[in-house]
Amino acid sequence: MEKIKIEICVGTTCFVMGASSIQALEFEIPEDLIGKIEVTESRCMEFCKDHKDGHHKGPFVKINGEVMADATYDKVLDKVRAIIKKKEEN
């Protein structure tokens, strides 16, 4: 199965809003996800500057390209597991 791409914004705003705790995914991958995800960091994705389309709350994480606002470690994992489940069902 293709790995799920997780891109964590580590720009200033996202970093202080908690991106660094999501970065734990770099080191402690839950057992069921080993080999299934690929984690990268990114500089400011510039969503933090964009107050109009409801995006404005960091930290931002892109999961397979889809933007998640107000991300947390748990929310990211839930989303990843949901994607895997969906794929397995198909």
Binding site: V10, G11, T12, F15, S20, Q23, E26, T40, E41, S42, R43
Partner: peptide, 17 residues
Amino acid sequence: DCEIDKTSFDKKIPCAS
């Protein structure tokens, strides 16, 4: 092209690129 440099990882400081 500018890419994140993971060798600079630190919990308190965002990575260099």
